[in-house]
């Protein structure tokens, strides 16, 4: 991590500044395995060039230091990409693209707290990497939709086959997308929001 002194800190370019009227912001988290297109999706819909925020995570390492009898701690720096969409003069949406190492996502203090929901991006060639994260989102009570990022050499499966393979309840939407395309990525976000709306109107456990 490279710390900048006050004089060298470069703030947002003038075109990246939010209007003074910006009154509140909300967030959506994009999760999924290595190289599934999370950063691509964030970049394609973001109005700013994606930025990176880095958190230092301290984890108690497995095992105990024999001589001192104290727990060892290891510090790891985890970087996350994020982008921004101004929804109106007042409301701003941020999209966080998690890094590939799943074990850090739920350690990141406050990443999922207060999030509207999550998008689980999957590559049908490597579905198994999504099992763990889907389970963790369900446990944490974070509502999500599944978006299948269509790579040219990947076989296309019927939605119901994917649903069975991922063991997803009927109500969780599964959509297809091309994360490189702005409209397609935007439609994934709209699917998530419509799902949240249907849930808000007819509450039942997610």
């Amino acid at each position: 991590m490279d710390c900048k002194s006050s004089e060298t800190v470069v703030g947002p370019r003038s075109e990246d500044r939010l209007p003074a009227s910006a009154a509140a912001a909300v967030k959506i988290v994009i999760v999924g395995g290595f190289g599934v297109g999370k950063t691509t999706l964030v970049r394609s819909v973001s109005e700013i060039r994606p930025l990176t925020t880095e958190e230092t995570m301290t984890q108690a390492s497995a095992g105990v230091d024999d001589t001192a009898g104290v727990e060892r701690k290891t510090a790891t720096t985890v970087a996350m990409d994020f982008g921004r969409i101004s929804l109106s003069d007042e409301l701003v949406l941020y999209l966080f693209g998690t890094p590939g190492q799943q074990r850090f996502w739920f350690l990141w203090n406050g990443l999922f707290d207060g999030a509207l929901g999550a998008v689980v991006l999957v590559d049908t060639r490597r579905l198994e990497v999504s099992f763990d994260v889907i389970g963790r989102l369900e446990e944490a009570g974070v509502p999500f939709v599944v978006a299948v990022n269509t790579f040219p050499d990947a076989t296309s499966y019927p939605t119901e086959e994917l649903r069975a393979a991922l063991d997803l309840p009927e109500k969780v939407p599964i959509v297809e997308c091309d994360a490189r395309l702005r409209e397609s990525s935007r439609d994934v976000l709209i699917s998530l929001m419509r799902y949240l709306r249907s849930h808000a109107l007819a509450p039942e456990p997610m």
Binding site: C3, S6, V10, G11, P12, R17, A20, V92, Y94
Partner: peptide, 19 residues
């Protein structure tokens, strides 16, 4: 300085390169 216009905590973190 960077917050002369509204800026999220995440953006401040990115511009200052601090967690």
């Amino acid at each position: 300085r960077v917050c002369r216009s509204p800026l999220s905590v995440a953006e401040i973190s990115a511009y200052l390169v601090l967690p």
